[in-house]
């Protein structure tokens, strides 16, 4: 442990830095990642340290950023693409879905695409239009990808280390609402966190909240002071998903609330409900509830607080599943 408490921005920077030292094939590419250090400063200082062969300010084209990364990865490099905001990742999706996610399967494992695509995601920072969406489900619904979303500095560090050692393409969503809102101790030259493992962010016995990203912090705040023992499962790895952790927690508590920022319909809450129905149905003591973004486009900043799950809505759901 370094002892010093750092932000998620600093933690990701540290993980990238250490992995670049450890593995000379790691390259960072994206819009404004070099001189500017990224618009959120996640890659600050890395150009100076590793040079412009390894930290590259690219032309403004997400499809090519992701597409050349596919080639780099097959060619033996380990590219880390930064997509400036997840709302602009859709041009890159055309490379990720039909190409990077499928090479392993198409070539019977002979060609693989170990690359990382990082993107700040989610709302809550009064941003411009298209800068607040949560699109994780598009990637979770694409077999062949690993999709991760940390909830704070420590998990961001450990998961980024894991992403840089993974054997497949990793989509790494960074919840920008908590980029600087949480400080934690983060190791120096520490270990990766396991992919596919959730963490119990808070242990409890009455209700399970399954959530991820910025909603972990918000869920903790929401249940503070409630006369209910709430267990919060921080999913961290959205695909593969820690099925056993979800099922075990719901079997224990008998009640489930899923919280996510993305729109409700087709959102991951539905998938989690399905898994609970498959493997913990007879343990349920109340109908499950989900607190999500509404089924509307993400609104402009004046209305974003009416859109995003807030502590009131989360607390109300917990209270309701206890009553039911």
């Amino acid at each position: 442990m370094s002892g010093e408490r750092i932000t998620m921005v600093q933690a990701i920077n540290r993980a990238l830095d250490e992995e670049m030292t450890r593995d000379p094939s790691v390259m960072l590419l994206g819009e404004d990642v070099g001189v500017d250090g990224g618009v959120f400063r996640v890659t600050q200082g890395l150009l100076a340290k590793y040079g412009n062969d390894r930290v590259i300010d690219t032309p403004l084209a997400e499809s090519a950023i992701a597409g050349v990364a596919v080639g780099l990865a097959i060619g033996g490099m380990r590219p880390v693409c930064e997509i400036q905001f997840s709302g602009f990742m859709n041009y890159a999706f055309e490379q990720i879905q039909p190409h990077s996610s499928r090479f392993r399967q198409r070539t019977c494992g002979s060609l693989t695409v170990p690359m990382v695509v990082r993107a700040p995601s989610g709302g809550g920072i009064r941003a411009l239009e298209h800068h607040s969406e949560s699109e994780e489900v598009m990637y979770v619904h694409t077999p062949g990808l690993i999709t991760l979303m940390p909830s704070g500095p420590r998990t961001a560090y450990g998961l980024m280390k894991a992403a840089l050692r993974a054997k497949d393409t990793v989509i790494f969503f960074e919840p920008k609402y908590v980029y600087r809102a949480i400080k934690e101790e983060v190791p120096v030259n520490g270990d990766p966190l396991p992919i596919g493992k959730a963490e119990i962010a808070q242990a409890g016995t009455d209700v399970t909240i399954v959530t991820w990203g910025a909603m972990v912090k918000r869920s903790k705040e929401a249940v503070k002071g409630l006369p209910v023992s709430v267990e919060i499962v921080d999913l961290l790895s959205l695909n593969p998903m820690d099925h056993d952790a979800i099922v075990a927690s719901v079997r224990k508590t008998g009640r489930l609330v899923v919280v996510h920022e993305a729109p409700r319909t087709g959102g991951l809450a539905g998938e989690i409900y399905a898994r609970v129905c498959e493997d913990a149905f007879y343990h349920l003591r109340a109908p499950m509830m989900r607190v999500c973004g509404w089924d509307t486009p993400f609104p402009l900043l004046a209305r974003e607080a009416a859109y995003l799950p807030d502590t009131n809505r989360i607390a109300a759901a917990v209270t309701k599943v206890m009553r039911d």
Binding site: V39, F40, G124, I125, V178, R180, A181, L301, A302, A305
Partner: peptide
């Protein structure tokens, strides 16, 4: 009945604690 409209109406934070970097104003 809670007032949730924000952004435009929110006053600038006291003490200059909100950092403005890159493209966006950061949370908290």
């Amino acid at each position: 009945g809670r007032a949730v409209l924000q952004g435009a109406t929110a006053q600038k934070k006291q003490g200059g604690s909100s950092s403005v970097v890159g493209e966006l104003q950061e949370a908290e």
